[in-house]
Design a protein around this nucleic acid. Sequence first.
DNA 1: GTCAATTGTTAGAATACACTAACAATGTAG
DNA 2: CTACATTGTTAGTGTATTCTAACAATTGAC
Lengths: 219, 219
Amino acid sequence: MASHTVENYLKALFALANKAGEVGISDLSDHLAVSKPSVNSMAKALQQDGFLKYEKYKPLKLTSKGKKVAALVVRKHRLTEMFLVEQMGFGWDEVHDIAEQVEHVKAPAFFDRMDELVGFPTVDPHGSPIPDAHGNVLEIDCVKLSECAVGEKVSLVGLSQSSKSLLSFLDSHGIALGHTFGILVVEPFDGSMTVEHQGAEARTFSLKVCERLLVRKEA
Amino acid sequence: MASHTVENYLKALFALANKAGEVGISDLSDHLAVSKPSVNSMAKALQQDGFLKYEKYKPLKLTSKGKKVAALVVRKHRLTEMFLVEQMGFGWDEVHDIAEQVEHVKAPAFFDRMDELVGFPTVDPHGSPIPDAHGNVLEIDCVKLSECAVGEKVSLVGLSQSSKSLLSFLDSHGIALGHTFGILVVEPFDGSMTVEHQGAEARTFSLKVCERLLVRKEA
DNA sequence: GTCAATTGTTAGAATACACTAACAATGTAG
DNA sequence: CTACATTGTTAGTGTATTCTAACAATTGAC
Ligand SMILES: [Mn+2]
Ligand SMILES: [Mn+2]
Ligand SMILES: [Mn+2]
Ligand SMILES: [Mn+2]
């Protein structure tokens, strides 16, 4: 069984690889708040256990074994978040830190039951896809709101990097997954966008916000 | 914050002290399946952190700080068991091992919510008392069934040492907490008892079983 | 292409937790 | 009181995970 620590390394590696492609020692070091020499020696250890391929000065590459372990931890994380929101009444901005711990529980029945109780969801409360029990992840068809053009109609399907402050921001503006937006203005100067929210009020969001909102274009 | 390991040591110490009074290095060693030298050095470390008083060759004594930490872990364990049974549909024989892991999660809100959702219970699914949020435990007024006499009417309020096999045994005989028994015969030879269960069928249980059933005498 | 910033590596050490082998203290039965 | 069993201790190690200090390789800017 992979330790708590190893699971966190693999999960970080998996997430970074999906975002940035190549993952170096420094990326992991930043992401996990662990020194580079620590990451370096852990990389060697993970290689020994067949979780990744490590060559000096080359980017780290998860093996399929490593990817699978990581995906299954992500699965437990996201099922937990879903359960916390749907069954326990937590807000979507409260669940990540709890899930970060619960994801390491070794009790398949526990997560299977969560899965069942929340109706076998395919995405977590922030719109991120939940890997299946074999560790396969369904990619979601979406683009950043910031990449959309005036006149398009889109609906919010997820967030890239959902920090607590982003979630609070969205909450305070009454924005939730599934909401629709019509793009009214794209400001060339700073990339801010004015959009109509749920067919009603027009709002303006900074580029920083628009880059974090993942949307699907409506027919 | 006490580590996973430290929490398990304190919890074991607390449980053994409540059962046997004096707790030696060997008791802990057996209970935790850890070598005696390991327990010995951990005892010194726990003393350093003020969790217990350790003197060479003397029994280990939890400080009030140690007792409180232990009780709060027990609280999380038992709330979790209750939640697993009441809200997630697990059987009382399935929850201990899961709770053994979940009890180490550091997220007060998580357990507070469980507490709320199961209606602020005072006992866990096996009848053991749940310490309050300050670490105070309410002792339950009960005796072993084996200590009762012919003619007495009692109800099952808890179990001493609820192992999985005991729970399965009780399940297979349709016995649950709250059920009532009338004592018909106490066999002097082997201490086995014949009792009437829920005012109906008469059953005979070995001493081994009767010693594990904690009952309250009915008025 | 050279230089400097970035990135990665090595060496050496610390902490937490565990183990075995050997020995010492304690307690108990006769 | 002695002998043996039980219990506890010490010493020495090992693994997992982390760190800092120092140095080396890579890369990107000019
Ligand atoms: Mn999360
Ligand atoms: Mn985690
Ligand atoms: Mn339990
Ligand atoms: Mn535990």
